[in-house]
Design a protein around this nucleic acid. Structure first.
Lengths: 210, 210
DNA sequence: GTCTATTTAGAGGAAACACTCTAGAAGGAG
DNA sequence: CTCCTTCTAGAGTGTTTCCTCTAAATAGAC
């Protein structure tokens, strides 16, 4: 593995475990046994490391949202989609944990994050709409029904891992992910076709992230 | 106003505007025109300032959750309760924005926060249960129905302001608070009695935070 | 084998920050 | 007036952190 990759790797681990601020250049370099000059050869500055990590997150995230939910959506794939998305959030938990601070310190990152978020919200709305079309779900009331459901899904999704960490859960287990998926489910539950819901929940309980 | 109060005041403003890390002791002292020694006379360290701010938040929060929701709960008071709670979250937004980092750096604060959160979750569940008893709401399905609804409410509540900030909203207006309250509403909406919901939404639209 | 581009080491500058220490002013109690 | 507590100033210490700069090692192209 190249030094560049080792830097990214360690930065991710460190940030995930102790927060985004914990991975300072000095620490990364010394833990890796390389010089600070070396680190700064590969990355212009600290922000760039975060930006590159965000890029990989973004690529993976878009893939999850697009690949896994082509119509029509069967319940098992729907459940797997939730679990996959939480797995991703877990692997990049540093990002969600310190999001506000990261975006404040890096205007470019902020712009890119916001674009991704807008896209995700539209996509979640599209997926919900698809479920309605599939006949797996009744349409939420109100002009903005679907949009609101998508937004609540997003809010819970992006904060579930953070909530676990805040609550003092140090080791997070598959069951915790499943609990998060279940919370997401409960946003849609009142609108879901009972057979679809039952089947999806069973898939969730089986707990297979693919 | 005593120097102690001025320190707390400025720390809160600074943290709200630029994040919890922005309010360093040097900056607070110099902005206030006092010496660092003076600041350290009033507070043992930086953490203590945050802890005191949290205490005032906690007191206010408990008051909102307890005072405003004695049974039975009429729709207008229910709406006002949501708006009041968002107003509080707004005034102490620094706390929610940097929560994970703050708790990581201060074990005592973490313990106190977690106790408050546990209490809040139980209280939200109690309120939902009260709505059911009042006949304003049908009971969510499942053994953990009420609990799940309470948890989703909590997750959205504690992250709504942060979501607005992350999304780049610099000036937050009453309409944004009402939108947050509406998102909270949509968690319960499928279970609410139509008349209750309509009436509560009207109260929300009227937008009076008391 | 030489030349050039890439990669690495490591010393160290510059600034930010939390906090300490000493000394003294201000104000109230007796 | 005197003493004691409360409050304030400001210099200064030690640490952390980001980042720069110079020089040298390494590796691939020709």
């Amino acid at each position: 593995m190249s030094n560049r990759d080792r830097i990214l790797d360690l930065a991710l681990t460190l940030m995930n475990e102790e927060g985004a601020e914990a991975a300072n250049t000095t620490r990364i370099a010394s833990a890796l046994g390389i010089s600070p000059g070396n680190l700064y050869y590969h990355f212009r500055n600290r922000e760039e490391i975060v930006r590159v990590l965000f890029e990989t997150l973004e690529v993976e995230f878009r893939a999850v949202l697009v690949e896994d939910v082509g119509p029509p959506i069967p319940p098992a794939r729907f459940a797997a989609f939730y679990l996959r998305s939480f797995d991703l959030a877990w692997r990049y938990r540093f990002f969600f944990g310190g999001l506000l601070g990261l975006l404040r310190r890096d205007e470019e990152l902020a712009a890119r994050y916001r674009a991704l978020q807008d896209w995700a919200l539209a996509e979640l709305e599209r997926i919900a709409g698809q479920l309605v079309k599939d006949g797996s779900m009744s349409r939420p009331r109100g002009r903005e029904g679907l949009r609101s459901v998508a937004l609540n899904t997003w809010l819970i999704w992006m904060n579930w891992i953070r909530f676990l960490q805040i609550s003092g859960k140090d080791v997070i287990q598959p069951a915790d992910m499943a609990a998060g998926a279940s919370q997401l489910f409960d946003v849609l539950a009142p609108y879901l076709d009972p057979a679809f819901e039952k089947s999806a929940r069973r898939a969730l309980a089986r707990n297979l992230p693919r």
